[in-house]
């Protein structure tokens, strides 16, 4: 393994502050440089390690860029048909109620083809965690317009920007599921700065712990970037996301359980 190091005298096991978690396998991530998927995978892996859930976690991976997710995290996985991850997770959680079950879906999977499964699973209050990566574009297929593409945003099928009069309005899935009675914890976060990564990790930790309360679906949206699909450098895509995506998809908790009653 080729490495470059800073000051060599400091590099001792007792001085270690941050190391890649062992839950992540050695497989090189299949994502483009700067993609938020990698960061989201890593914080999820860190939480599974810190909460001691490696043998209890079952993930359901989607179709999309993160379709190969089962290669990257060393836990049990099930691949679902496109958009059907919440239906598969429902079955897994009902048959194995003591496990930590989650789905990891992009916006093409969750908000386009899988809208019905997502809304019905959240409405039934199925007791698993949905992680929703929203980059406003179909990344894997070549940057086409998705239901979550924001007004005016350019994509390969809306080269002059999304015109809402002709192409319709974007779908804010997180706002929709927050209104459903079955959801327990609904939040929107991002992973583009160190502070946001820490906040997202805190939100995901809460969502993991809430699953063992058996109170309903937890839904964590992570607004992410897609440098290749947006035709930008990773740093430009982060700036663009801060200026355009985050005003449209404001970060924060949408539905939090009442600490006193737990409902």
């Amino acid at each position: 393994m080729a490495e470059v190091t800073g000051i060599k005298e400091i590099i001792k096991p007792e001085n270690l502050v941050y190391k890649r978690t062992g839950i992540m396998t050695d497989t090189v991530l299949s994502y483009c440089p700067g993609c938020g998927h990698g960061t989201a995978h890593r914080i999820l892996a860190e939480l599974i390690e810190e909460e001691g859930l490696q043998s209890k976690a079952i993930g359901v991976s989607p179709v999309g860029c993160s379709v190969l997710l089962y290669n990257f995290l060393d836990i049990d996985w099930q691949e679902a048909a496109h958009g059907r991850a919440p239906a598969v997770a429902t079955a897994i959680k009902r048959l194995l109620p003591d496990r930590f079950v989650f789905t990891y879906q992009g916006d093409g999977d969750l908000a386009a083809i899988g809208t019905a499964e997502t809304i019905h699973a959240c409405n039934r209050g199925e007791n698993f965690l949905i992680i929703f990566i929203n980059n406003g574009i179909y990344g894997m297929t070549g940057g086409q317009m998705a239901p979550t593409t924001i007004p005016g945003m350019k994509s390969s099928t809306s080269p002059f920007g999304r015109d809402v009069r002709m192409m319709g309005n974007p779908l804010k899935m997180t706002d929709i599921v927050a209104t459903l009675p079955g959801t327990y914890y609904v939040t929107r976060q991002s992973v583009h700065t160190p502070a946001n990564v820490k906040k997202t990790k805190r939100a995901l930790r809460k969502a993991i712990q809430y699953q063992f309360h058996n109170k309903g679906t937890c839904f964590v949206e992570i607004v992410s970037n897609c440098p290749s699909g947006w035709k930008m450098t990773p740093v430009e895509s982060i700036r663009w996301m801060e200026e355009n995506m985050l005003p449209f998809y404001p970060l924060g908790d949408m539905k939090v359980p009442d600490e006193k009653t737990g409902k």
């Binding site: 190091t5 800073g6 502050v17 890649r20 991530l29 993609c35 992973v191």
Partner: peptide
């Protein structure tokens, strides 16, 4: 690390790295 003397070991780089390539030590 182009300026290794400036590093304060805050781990910000490692936390945002999508590919988890950075290990951080602090003293």
């Amino acid at each position: 690390p182009a300026n290794p003397d400036l590093c304060i070991g805050c781990a910000n780089c490692a936390i945002v790295c999508p590919d988890g390539v950075i290990t951080v030590y602090k003293t």
